[in-house]
Structures are given as structure tokens and as C-alpha cells.
Amino acid sequence: MPSPSSPGAFFYSQVIYHPPLPTKKLTGQTVIVTGSNVGLGLEAARHFVRLDANKVILAVRNLEKGQKAKQSIVSSEKTKADVVEVWKLDLGDYRSVKEFTARAQGLERLDIVIENAGILTTKWSMMEENESTITTNVVSQFLHAIPLLPKMRETAIKFNTLPRLVFTTSFVHWLTKFPERKEDKIFAALADPKKARMGDRYNVSKLIEIYCVQELAELQSASQKEGRVIINHVNPGWVVSEVMREWTGLKQMIFRIVRSLVARPTEVGARTLVNAAEGGEETHGQYMDDCGVGKRAPLVITEEGKAIQKKLWTELSQKLESIQPGILQNI
């Protein structure tokens, strides 16, 4: 089969392959899904409710839209209203992220976390001390995920389970050459508007996220702390969503036509997130693609890629510690 970056492989994945409907029951479990008022996050949350999760937390930026998403799930799955909760989470605001993780410490258990929220924009703007895409798709992902690990380990020990931390990444990491990797300070370069390549920024953010997920998984494996947590990341494929809502006119029309021909329905794409959340030891640190361990771009797996991973993690660690001192002790 061609590499995932080839037209043949892309066509096979998008048109021929059909992710199976998840059937593994999650009775009694607690799940958090970020970015779950629309799109992949909403449909993944709907699946988790269907699979009998005891509590599904919709982590959303807009509480009103989150409540509408909750009602949609309660109605379609004919479940009790208290199964679905709506919590505030704005990945563009570090205070919001820290408030969410502090609140999560009060949960009785935490079995699954889906780090799904993200943005795609070609417009330059700053959020906190980074360009908005980097803040949302990278820094805040880990500012949110790492403090949740102790609760997940506690769950593993108390309930004899195997919690999963899943990041939604993407096949688009194949599409960037990531020239910023050659900068002395990568995050600083990405925060410089004079150096910004916003047309490639989403691809870059997903590649950086992959590097950092892999490093986090390696550190988790090396930790001597009790309680095993599986950490992986998943490519949902090209899915029907509003992620390209910035595009207008002829560009938007062409995009919608092509999308209608090859993009997965949102519910079908969401199955891949649930599949990753069912993954066993063999998925730890892995890139999940078409409900199996997939191929990563050469820039990830070469010796150069391994060095980039270490460099990015060092820079990210410094950022995280400056935002929340002591955060790395949670790993």
C-alpha cells in the first residue's frame, strides 16, 4: 500500500476503508472530551454515552453551545440528563485551562480523556504568549492533559482499569517540511509575525503535537509512579466539519464539492477517536490511523526527528513550568 502521503493511500483511507462502529462497553467510566459542542468531539461524546459511560464531560469554550450539544446527546441516546455534564474550557486562556484541571481533581474517577479541541486559521493573532494556533493546538493541550494524569493513575489503581489519554492529531503532519525546526528557539520563531507561514501553520502545529505526545508517552513509560495510563494520538482523516469556515467565495464552494466526495461523515470520523480510546498497550505512544497503528512521516521517525522531539519538549517544558510551576511532577 502507498505511503499515507500518496493520493492512492489517501483515497483508500477516505473512500474504501470504513471505520467500524465501536461496541466495547464503558459501563461506570468517566470520560472527558474537549471541543465537544460540535463536530468530531460531539460525535465522539455521543458514542461514549451510547457505550454506557457513567459520566461524559463536554469540555467547551461556549457553555450555551455546550448545553445545546448536551441536549442533542440526551435526546438521541435517550439517556438521563445527569450522564452528560458541560464544563467550561477555553484553550486560548491559560487560567481557564488551570481552573478546569483543578475542578477535575474532584472527580471520583477519570478513565478516558480525548484532547480533541483545536483551531485552523490562516490569520495571525496572539493568544497568551504564542500565536493562537500554537497556544490552542500545542501548549494548552499539554497544560490541560498533564495535570489530569494523577487522577487517571489513581483510577487505574482504584478500579483496576487502564485509562487512556488520546490526542486528536492528523495526517496533515505529512504535508509540512517544518522549516522552523532549524531555528535556535522554535516556539519563539513561531511567535514572530515576520516569520509566520500561516498557510502551513495548522500542519506544523499538528506535527509539533505529535512530537510532544510521543515524548510524553515515553516519559510516562519511564515513570516509576503506580498506575498505568495509555497515551496515544489519532488521525481521524478528512472529516465533514466547519474547520475551513474562514474560506469564502469560490474557494469555499470548491472545497465543499471536494469534501462531499471524499470526506468522512463526522460520526464515522469520530469512531476513530473512540477506537483509540479502546487501545491497549500496543497503542501506547503510537499514531493511530484507520483504527490501527499507522505510519508517521519520515520527519518524525528519523534520527533528526528524534532530536527535534527532544528539543521541542525541552522548550515546551519550560513554557509549561512558567505557566504552572511544578506541572511536570504530574508525569
Rank of each mutant, 00 (worst) to 15 (best):
G118N: 08
S76L: 08
Q220R: 02
G118H: 07
T101M: 00
P325D: 06
L250A: 14
G294V: 03
K123A: 15
P20H: 03
K68I: 15
S3A: 14
Y287G: 00
R271K: 11
L148I: 12
Q29R: 05
Q286V: 03
D290R: 11
K182E: 13
K78H: 15
V33D: 10
T176C: 08
R103A: 13
N37S: 15
G237N: 13
I231W: 03
L320N: 07
V239T: 14
V240D: 06
K80A: 15
P150Y: 04
L165M: 05
A145S: 14
I134L: 11
S322P: 00
H173P: 01
L216T: 06
G305D: 01
E315S: 00
R109W: 10
K70T: 09
A188S: 13
K310D: 12
G326V: 06
V213P: 05
F178K: 05
Y211I: 10
Q141A: 13
A270G: 02
L316H: 04
P20Y: 00
K251Y: 07
V229W: 01
V300A: 07
E64L: 10
L149K: 00
A263W: 10
T266R: 04
G39L: 12
Q318V: 09
H47S: 06
L190S: 04
I327Y: 08
L63Y: 01
G66F: 06
D82V: 10
Q141M: 12
F255Y: 15
V204E: 04
S13A: 12
G269A: 03
L110E: 10
R197Q: 08
I254Q: 10
G269Q: 08
V243N: 01
G249H: 03
D192V: 11
E43L: 10
Q224H: 14
R201G: 01
R271D: 03
F167E: 05
G92N: 04
K311W: 08
V293L: 06
V240R: 12
D290N: 14
W238F: 14
S170G: 09
R256T: 07
R103V: 05
Q141K: 08
F187T: 12
S125M: 11
L143N: 05
V113F: 04
L162T: 15
K251H: 12
K182P: 01
I186F: 01
Y12H: 11
M198L: 15
E281H: 08
R197I: 13
A44Q: 07
V97G: 01
T168P: 04
V239E: 05
G237I: 14
E304F: 08
I186T: 03
K319N: 07
F187A: 10
K206H: 07
L58G: 03
D52T: 10
V113W: 02
D93K: 05
Q105W: 06
R259S: 13
Y202N: 01
N116R: 05
V60N: 02
M127I: 01
I323L: 07
K55F: 04
I112D: 03
V38Q: 03
G292P: 01
P19W: 14
T169Y: 06
K206T: 09
L40I: 13
I186G: 01
Y17F: 15
K319P: 00
K225Q: 15
P163C: 11
H47R: 00
T266H: 06
L273F: 13
